[in-house]
């Protein structure tokens, strides 16, 4: 029996969302695509392989019975090759892997930063689909052109806020500063975060001051994605992020000394974030 089947999928389309940021939509058409394995939840990820180049993890951005999408930033060899993909090309994926955001009733604050926003978008759709209360959403980026999915977020909630580091649009400042302002005015029951780890870390510290539980998606160098190579392990608890993450709760994060501080690089050597 194969535990984690690979699925060779056909590219339906690729679009450039912003400078160097692309979304690829894939269709489950080949006979090794068994969609009964593929019920993706917000926060989960897939391993995407470009033959001859490599394989890397990407968050699932959208998933329905017939197709699936992910968004990526061009930063290295695999994303460079992905950016050149054309409709009808083939990509192989494995997944969906990892933990998901758990939906809960009450006043939810969703925070997405830069190109790590896709899981937040998927979460917002899921909350709406399942009839949860409208969340408050913060979408933050370096400049206005990197604010992804603004129109969609605007439709999903009346409480949509944007922030840009350079002040080119909306709030002038980062996600954490905007969050701090909101927390002085409103009460929240839960905060969901996906963004650069430093941002997530400071947002977490802020939430802790108010005693608001968080769920945060983290990234680490992932070589296998299935819990055997050890490249994604977090200290000191030995949490295996590819399986027991990427979405972690405040309760778990309180025990992770690496959070916001240290990661393991390609060789397994420890580096500062």
């Amino acid at each position: 029996m194969i535990k984690y089947p690979r699925m060779t999928m056909t590219v339906v389309n690729i679009r450039e969302e912003a400078n160097d940021i692309f979304t690829i939509e894939l269709a489950f058409v080949n006979s090794n695509c068994d969609i009964k394995y593929f019920i993706a939840k917000p926060g989960q990820f897939i391993m995407v392989q470009v033959f001859g180049v490599g394989e890397k993890p990407f968050s699932i951005f959208h998933s329905v019975e017939t197709s699936l999408s992910f968004t990526f930033k061009r930063i290295g060899s695999v994303t460079e090759a992905l950016a050149k993909i054309k409709p009808h090309d083939l990509l192989t994926i494995r997944g969906p892997y990892g933990t998901e955001y758990t939906l809960s009733h009450g006043r939810n604050l969703l925070i997405g930063g830069g190109y790590a926003t896709p899981p937040i978008r998927m979460l917002a759709y899921e909350l709406k689909k399942q009839g949860f209360e409208e969340p408050t959403i913060i979408n933050a980026a370096r400049t206005q052109e990197y604010l992804l999915y603004s129109q969609e977020f605007n439709k999903l909630t009346n409480a949509y806020h944007e922030a840009t580091d350079d002040g080119s649009r909306a709030y002038h400042g980062n996600a954490v500063e905007l969050m701090r302002d909101l927390l002085t005015q409103e009460k929240f029951d839960k905060i969901y975060i996906s963004g650069p780890e430093k941002m997530a870390y400071f947002a977490f510290l802020e939430a802790e001051k108010y005693g608001i539980p968080c769920e945060i998606s983290l990234e680490r160098y992932m070589k296998c994605g299935v819990g055997i190579c050890g490249s994604c392990v977090l200290d000191p608890t030995g949490l295996i992020l590819c399986q027991e993450g990427p979405v972690l709760s405040s309760e778990t994060l309180r025990n992770i000394e690496d959070f916001g501080k240290l990661l393991r690089n390609k060789t397994g050597s420890i580096e500062k974030i």
Partner: peptide
């Protein structure tokens, strides 16, 4: 070590080419 994919599953086990990744 080698670039991913470093493991490929088949019906009976794994093939791996981790390539001795170590710090």
């Amino acid at each position: 070590g080698h670039d991913s994919p470093i493991i490929a599953e088949f019906d009976g086990g794994l093939t791996n080419s981790v390539g001795l990744t170590n710090p």
